[in-house]
Simulated assay, not measured.
Amino acid sequence: MNTFGPPKLVLARGEGAHVWDVDGREYVDFLGGIAVNTLGHNHPALVAAVSDQLSTLGHTSNFFTTRPAVELAERLLSICSQPDAPEGRVFFANSGSEANEAAIKLSRLTGRTKIVVMQDAFHGRTMGSLALTAKAAYREPFEPLPGDVTWIPFGDVEALRGAVDEQTAAVVIEPLQGEAGVNVAPTAYLRAAREVTSAAGALLWFDEVQSGMGRTGHWLASAPSGVQPDVVTLAKGLGGGLPIGACLAWGEAAHLFGPGNHGTTFGGNPVVCAAALAVLDTIEKESLLDHATAVGERLRAGVGADARVTDVRGEGLLVGLTLAAEKAPEVVAAAQDAGWIVNATGGDRVRMAPPLVVSFDDVDALVAAWPGILDAAGA
């Protein structure tokens, strides 16, 4: 069905941060499946984990559990919790939208309905997550949408204080707004959100679907703030290319769901959980958090050195650029012609989210090609 328009390429295979189309032409993937392919393409650890698990047990339904699911839940709570965090629990889903649907339902079980959301936010395409997604073109064809939603400017502490009251079930924040062009939430804002929600008895929910799992050089983009949220939603990079989402909750929020409140047939199946464990293991073994930090700094400095780029945002390997001219779609097309895959998130905004395994050589090659790409795009 025509939900995305004509495909730009027909890709056939990949290796690391490189892909080849069906005609044999090579591209360097600086989008990573929209921040999904954490380990790039065809990583041996991911291939082995999926193959080994599928050869023993592939699916059990939600009537049972498996060792990979239990191990992954424990691992996620360990790496995503601040040191003073209360007990946590995990619900596994199949995508970021589904993880966010779980969080919406969780917030309803507080007995409140109001959700405070940031302008320019993106939380998914299902009816519940779409109700929290800012872009009118995504929402309006499907209205009326569920929920009691209040929109406030991203990063505005006073607007936050004014919006959160005793009717608020949750405040949802992307620590890095990916679809909006990579907008970074200031640490002071995240800390203020913790203070305001705690005072009002509302849940603080960080949507780290795009920014989590090492993308920013930390397990969570919010981690350096020291803020412990009540809820975190994950997906994209967690499975390294396999479909998995997770809704993590701590303290009272971890105990809101009871039997029958929510469910999934495929969520948390052993194959995707084994894949996610392999992703986490490899990030640690290959020191990819440090690598993402270092190579991301070089990428941002390199592409931002051209005067036609007026702003560079992001952390690690989630990078947003603002162009002086409204030429982002043309830049994407010119980059593809030159053998590079990047993404436009607006008329003047370009996003890059390469695999965490992208090499310094690939980054240096893109930086060298960048002025020519802008020339070809008429930027």
Rank of each mutant, 00 (worst) to 15 (best):
7 P>K: 09
14 G>W: 03
18 H>K: 15
22 V>G: 08
27 Y>R: 01
32 G>S: 00
41 H>N: 08
48 A>I: 08
50 V>G: 07
51 S>N: 09
54 L>W: 11
55 S>E: 14
55 S>N: 15
60 T>Y: 11
64 F>C: 12
67 R>L: 15
67 R>D: 15
73 A>R: 03
79 I>G: 04
82 Q>S: 13
89 R>L: 11
92 F>D: 00
95 S>V: 09
97 S>K: 04
98 E>R: 11
98 E>L: 13
99 A>P: 06
102 A>S: 13
105 K>E: 14
110 T>G: 14
110 T>K: 08
112 R>T: 05
119 Q>T: 13
123 H>G: 10
126 T>Q: 10
139 R>A: 13
139 R>M: 12
141 P>Q: 09
141 P>D: 11
145 L>I: 09
149 V>Q: 05
151 W>L: 14
154 F>A: 14
155 G>Y: 05
157 V>I: 15
159 A>N: 00
162 G>A: 14
163 A>F: 02
167 Q>G: 11
168 T>H: 00
169 A>I: 02
171 V>S: 12
172 V>D: 04
172 V>E: 06
173 I>L: 07
177 Q>T: 12
180 A>Q: 03
180 A>E: 04
183 N>K: 15
188 A>K: 14
194 R>V: 07
196 V>R: 02
197 T>R: 04
199 A>H: 03
204 L>C: 10
206 F>V: 11
209 V>Y: 00
213 M>V: 15
217 G>I: 03
219 W>R: 06
219 W>L: 09
220 L>F: 03
224 P>N: 05
230 D>Y: 00
233 T>E: 09
237 G>P: 13
245 G>I: 01
247 C>Q: 06
248 L>Q: 03
250 W>E: 04
251 G>H: 02
253 A>K: 01
255 H>A: 15
256 L>S: 05
259 P>Y: 05
262 H>P: 06
262 H>G: 13
262 H>F: 13
269 N>K: 10
270 P>E: 02
271 V>W: 04
276 A>Q: 02
278 A>H: 00
280 L>K: 02
281 D>H: 06
283 I>S: 02
287 S>L: 07
288 L>Y: 00
290 D>C: 08
290 D>S: 14
292 A>H: 01
293 T>Y: 12
294 A>K: 11
295 V>I: 12
296 G>A: 11
299 L>F: 09
307 A>D: 11
310 T>V: 14
321 L>M: 15
325 A>P: 04
325 A>E: 14
331 V>K: 02
341 I>A: 01
342 V>I: 12
348 D>V: 08
352 M>R: 00
358 V>S: 07
365 A>E: 10
367 V>F: 10
368 A>E: 14
370 W>T: 02
377 A>G: 06
377 A>I: 01
